[in-house]
Design a protein around this nucleic acid. Sequence first.
DNA 1: ATATTTCTTTGACTTTAGTCAAACTTTGGC
DNA 2: GCCAAAGTTTGACTAAAGTCAAAGAAATAT
Lengths: 297, 297
Amino acid sequence: MDQVTALRRFNRYFTRRIGVLDDHYLGQDRPLGEARLLFEIHESASEASGTGASLRELRTRLGLDAGYLSRMAKALEAQGLVRTSVHPGDNRLRRVALTPAGRAEVTEQNRRAGALAAGLLEGLAPGQRTDLTGALATAQRLLRLAAITVTLVPGASPDARACLEAYAADLDVRFPEGFDESALVRPEEVSGDAGAFFVAYEESRPVGCGALRRLEPRVGEIRHVWVHREARRLGLARRLLAALEGEAAARGFDVVRLDTHAALTEAQAMYRACGYREIPRYDDNVYAAHWFEKRLE
Amino acid sequence: MDQVTALRRFNRYFTRRIGVLDDHYLGQDRPLGEARLLFEIHESASEASGTGASLRELRTRLGLDAGYLSRMAKALEAQGLVRTSVHPGDNRLRRVALTPAGRAEVTEQNRRAGALAAGLLEGLAPGQRTDLTGALATAQRLLRLAAITVTLVPGASPDARACLEAYAADLDVRFPEGFDESALVRPEEVSGDAGAFFVAYEESRPVGCGALRRLEPRVGEIRHVWVHREARRLGLARRLLAALEGEAAARGFDVVRLDTHAALTEAQAMYRACGYREIPRYDDNVYAAHWFEKRLE
DNA sequence: ATATTTCTTTGACTTTAGTCAAACTTTGGC
DNA sequence: GCCAAAGTTTGACTAAAGTCAAAGAAATAT
């Protein structure tokens, strides 16, 4: 309960003191809503290799009313900061991209916010600055992890399939011999009585997954534990593993097994740290080089 | 420059994800402005032993327009959440205090915000929660320190005198024999050519001070380094000391001296850690038990 | 091919937040 | 006792933020 207080105290301090200041500087010459929208268009554009973001995307990201957003976009266009066009491929969608003037504006926003942050850091000695940066990084990592939810989904759901595709693509790059998607579990193997599939969501985006299937009576197998590149080093894999083990225990399995590729040394280290011990080969997975097992309580 | 980026990244993440959520929950049934005002009235009331806060106090704390605040207070009164009365002692001021209904509302606000924070922490293992709390505490400490400014003020200024009074009151409690204000420096000793006086401000409130005066040619004396109870353990004394030493060097002093009371053991430890070494008695200060000196570069 | 859903635009609103100046009362300095 | 300053209230505004529903166009499902 004291930790709740600490979190709230920090929240109050931070949003009132720093956050408010930042917003104030951000939207110096224009409404905050427009400034934020401009910023978000810039972000979306630089993330996706493409040029610009769709209104639909911005709407969900900023959580705005469709009409409100439409009008703001029009206002930005009237000011010459963005250009809109129909989305190629889906004519219902509207694409918004920054003009050079819009990009200049975002750069200026960044300069101001950066100056604010730099001014704040100036009051600290170099060592203290490092401490601050470290503490903020730790806090952000843990807050992100805390905000991620791990939920059971049907093995055939689009999110599950999307995760497995990303997983396969990652492995294909990682394994010297490549990776063939046919080695993935089939949806029916991880649905209903046969097994389970978990997806980790960060702000309703899937950022990780893990599958459990029945191998033999009272023995389960964990497969395809994967974490999105941008959600790594948060401790998410451990949470997925814990969810899978909990599910296995609930299904009456005494033991869970899993295998890993020789190249995935960090994964092996994690399994060991989580109480798995290496066992002899139990399957004929061509990609596997190590086999592990853990006895459940 | 990378530290600036880290600070900004955290700021963005935190305000958008946690701060916004918190505000949203806070003001569930009423405008955010009113919810904040209600909260602030509660805070002021519990801080000051008295019942309620003056509008003037709330105005400076929240940085609101007088007219705007007056109207919001009236709205809260119409809703039966606060009661206003004339301030005893100054009939210009208006005092606002929570009614039982108002207190219930604040309790409900707190419950909601607490539930939000608790929900967030639930996603973490106990060890991770401790890490998070620790990181946030460190970050808050350093951010506060960074936001404090140390400035040179005339020795006779009200802020300087207020600090010295608080300093004397602290010592009077701390020293077994008490402390008499006549032992303080006189304003003229720390103004102009004779010396200097620094005040540390946090959000325009004085939270610390330190004096420098000429003892002999090329020798300065540092006196009355004090930090407000609520601004301790931030590293502020060191910053004050650094400011005083910088000023001493700028005035051509080669050496600074200072004395401390036997009871102030943490102060002694700090002086040693900051490069001061103990020397024989150099004055006849009745409160002093240890004398220190530092040679400036 | 038809119906349903998705996405955007537009019109018509409301609420919140905030500003500015004038008026009035009380205090404190001289 | 007079005058300036401080504190509050009120009137008269504006801008920003956001809501809701209707309507039209394009995609998708059946």
